[in-house]
Protein backbone atom coordinates (compact mmCIF):
# COMPACT_ATOMS: atom_id res chain seq x y z
CA UNK A 1 0.00 0.00 0.00
CA UNK A 2 1.40 3.42 -1.00
CA UNK A 3 -0.79 6.49 -0.63
CA UNK A 4 0.34 10.07 -1.09
CA UNK A 5 -1.64 12.97 0.34
CA UNK A 6 -1.10 16.71 0.09
CA UNK A 7 -2.46 19.60 2.22
CA UNK A 8 -2.10 23.37 1.98
CA UNK A 9 -1.56 25.18 5.30
CA UNK A 10 -2.49 28.86 5.49
CA UNK A 11 -0.53 31.28 7.69
CA UNK A 12 -1.99 33.09 10.70
CA UNK A 13 -5.25 31.15 10.81
CA UNK A 14 -5.20 29.13 13.99
CA UNK A 15 -8.87 28.23 13.66
CA UNK A 16 -8.01 26.01 10.67
CA UNK A 17 -4.95 24.41 12.26
CA UNK A 18 -5.38 20.72 12.87
CA UNK A 19 -7.12 19.77 9.64
CA UNK A 20 -4.13 17.88 8.23
CA UNK A 21 -3.24 16.20 11.52
CA UNK A 22 -6.87 15.15 12.10
CA UNK A 23 -7.00 13.73 8.58
CA UNK A 24 -3.83 11.71 9.18
CA UNK A 25 -5.13 10.46 12.52
CA UNK A 26 -8.43 9.32 11.01
CA UNK A 27 -6.65 7.40 8.25
CA UNK A 28 -4.43 5.62 10.78
CA UNK A 29 -7.49 4.73 12.86
CA UNK A 30 -9.13 3.19 9.80
CA UNK A 31 -5.94 1.21 9.23
CA UNK A 32 -6.16 -0.09 12.82
CA UNK A 33 -2.74 1.28 13.72
CA UNK A 34 -1.79 0.91 17.40
CA UNK A 35 -3.39 3.71 19.47
CA UNK A 36 -0.14 4.80 21.07
CA UNK A 37 1.47 5.22 17.66
CA UNK A 38 -1.56 7.24 16.51
CA UNK A 39 -1.19 9.43 19.60
CA UNK A 40 2.48 10.12 18.81
CA UNK A 41 1.64 10.91 15.19
CA UNK A 42 -1.16 13.26 16.31
CA UNK A 43 1.17 15.16 18.65
CA UNK A 44 3.98 15.55 16.13
CA UNK A 45 1.83 16.46 13.14
CA UNK A 46 -0.31 18.94 15.07
CA UNK A 47 2.79 20.68 16.42
CA UNK A 48 4.25 20.86 12.92
CA UNK A 49 1.01 22.18 11.49
CA UNK A 50 0.78 24.85 14.20
CA UNK A 51 4.38 25.88 13.53
CA UNK A 52 3.62 26.49 9.85
CA UNK A 53 0.54 28.55 10.81
CA UNK A 54 2.16 30.73 13.47
CA UNK A 55 5.75 31.09 12.22
CA UNK A 56 5.67 31.00 8.42
CA UNK A 57 4.28 32.67 5.32
CA UNK A 58 2.31 29.48 4.67
CA UNK A 59 3.22 26.02 3.52
CA UNK A 60 2.08 22.51 2.90
CA UNK A 61 2.05 19.03 4.33
CA UNK A 62 2.71 15.91 2.28
CA UNK A 63 2.51 12.45 3.66
CA UNK A 64 2.79 8.95 2.38
CA UNK A 65 1.65 5.76 4.06
CA UNK A 66 3.36 2.54 3.12
CA UNK A 67 2.75 -0.94 4.48
CA UNK A 68 4.59 -0.28 7.72
CA UNK A 69 5.50 3.39 7.94
CA UNK A 70 4.22 6.93 7.70
CA UNK A 71 6.44 9.63 6.22
CA UNK A 72 5.25 13.18 6.81
CA UNK A 73 6.89 16.31 5.41
CA UNK A 74 6.00 19.89 6.34
CA UNK A 75 7.35 22.54 3.99
CA UNK A 76 6.92 26.26 4.51
CA UNK A 77 7.87 29.30 2.44
CA UNK A 78 9.95 31.21 4.97
CA UNK A 79 11.19 33.24 6.73
CA UNK A 80 13.18 30.33 8.16
CA UNK A 81 14.70 29.57 11.54
CA UNK A 82 17.80 31.57 12.49
CA UNK A 83 19.23 28.89 14.80
CA UNK A 84 17.86 25.37 14.62
CA UNK A 85 20.06 24.43 17.55
CA UNK A 86 18.37 27.01 19.78
CA UNK A 87 14.91 26.25 18.42
CA UNK A 88 15.35 22.60 19.43
CA UNK A 89 15.80 23.58 23.08
CA UNK A 90 12.66 23.25 25.21
CA UNK A 91 11.36 26.67 26.23
CA UNK A 92 12.89 28.60 23.33
CA UNK A 93 10.25 30.41 21.30
CA UNK A 94 9.92 33.28 18.84
CA UNK A 95 6.13 33.08 18.77
CA UNK A 96 4.11 36.22 18.05
CA UNK A 97 1.74 37.91 20.49
CA UNK A 98 -1.16 36.41 18.48
CA UNK A 99 0.23 32.89 18.98
CA UNK A 100 0.95 33.44 22.67
CA UNK A 101 -2.55 34.83 23.31
CA UNK A 102 -3.93 31.63 21.81
CA UNK A 103 -1.96 29.37 24.13
CA UNK A 104 1.08 28.68 21.95
CA UNK A 105 4.69 29.82 22.28
CA UNK A 106 5.82 27.50 25.07
CA UNK A 107 8.84 26.57 22.97
CA UNK A 108 7.91 22.89 22.96
CA UNK A 109 6.96 22.41 19.32
CA UNK A 110 10.16 21.08 17.76
CA UNK A 111 11.22 19.06 20.86
CA UNK A 112 7.74 17.49 20.97
CA UNK A 113 7.99 16.53 17.29
CA UNK A 114 11.41 14.98 17.78
CA UNK A 115 10.31 13.00 20.83
CA UNK A 116 7.09 11.76 19.23
CA UNK A 117 8.57 10.61 15.91
CA UNK A 118 10.85 7.66 15.16
CA UNK A 119 13.01 9.77 12.87
CA UNK A 120 13.07 13.57 12.70
CA UNK A 121 14.97 15.91 10.42
CA UNK A 122 14.84 19.65 9.88
CA UNK A 123 16.51 22.05 7.46
CA UNK A 124 15.91 25.75 7.24
CA UNK A 125 16.91 28.81 5.21
CA UNK A 126 15.33 32.18 4.48
CA UNK A 127 13.37 30.49 1.70
CA UNK A 128 11.71 28.14 4.13
CA UNK A 129 11.84 25.24 6.54
CA UNK A 130 11.42 21.55 5.80
CA UNK A 131 10.57 19.09 8.55
CA UNK A 132 10.43 15.37 7.79
CA UNK A 133 9.21 12.78 10.24
CA UNK A 134 9.00 9.04 9.99
CA UNK A 135 6.78 6.82 12.11
CA UNK A 136 7.04 3.06 12.17
CA UNK A 137 3.46 1.79 12.10
CA UNK A 138 4.25 -1.84 12.82
CA UNK A 139 2.80 -4.99 11.28
CA UNK A 140 0.60 -5.32 8.24
CA UNK A 141 -2.07 -2.67 8.02
CA UNK A 142 -5.67 -3.27 7.06
CA UNK A 143 -6.79 -1.71 3.83
CA UNK A 144 -9.08 1.32 4.16
Amino acid sequence: MNRLYDFTINPNDLSQAGIASSFIKNILKKLNVNREIIRRVAIATYEAEINVVIHSYGGKCNFIITDNSLNVTFIDYGPGIISIEEAMLEGTSTASKYAIENGFGAGMGLPNMQKASDHFSITSSKEGTVISMLFKLGGDLNDC
Binding site: L14, G18, S22, K25, A42, N102
Partner: peptide
Protein backbone atom coordinates in the same frame (compact mmCIF):
# COMPACT_ATOMS: atom_id res chain seq x y z
CA UNK B 1 -8.61 28.95 30.85
CA UNK B 2 -7.95 28.75 27.10
CA UNK B 3 -11.25 28.62 25.20
CA UNK B 4 -10.24 28.68 21.54
CA UNK B 5 -10.72 26.13 18.76
CA UNK B 6 -7.19 24.78 19.21
CA UNK B 7 -8.08 23.38 22.64
CA UNK B 8 -10.86 21.39 21.00
CA UNK B 9 -8.49 20.20 18.27
CA UNK B 10 -5.98 18.96 20.85
CA UNK B 11 -8.70 17.31 22.97
CA UNK B 12 -9.90 15.50 19.87
CA UNK B 13 -6.44 14.46 18.68
CA UNK B 14 -5.41 13.15 22.10
CA UNK B 15 -8.88 11.82 22.96
Amino acid sequence: AITNMNVIAIASLLE
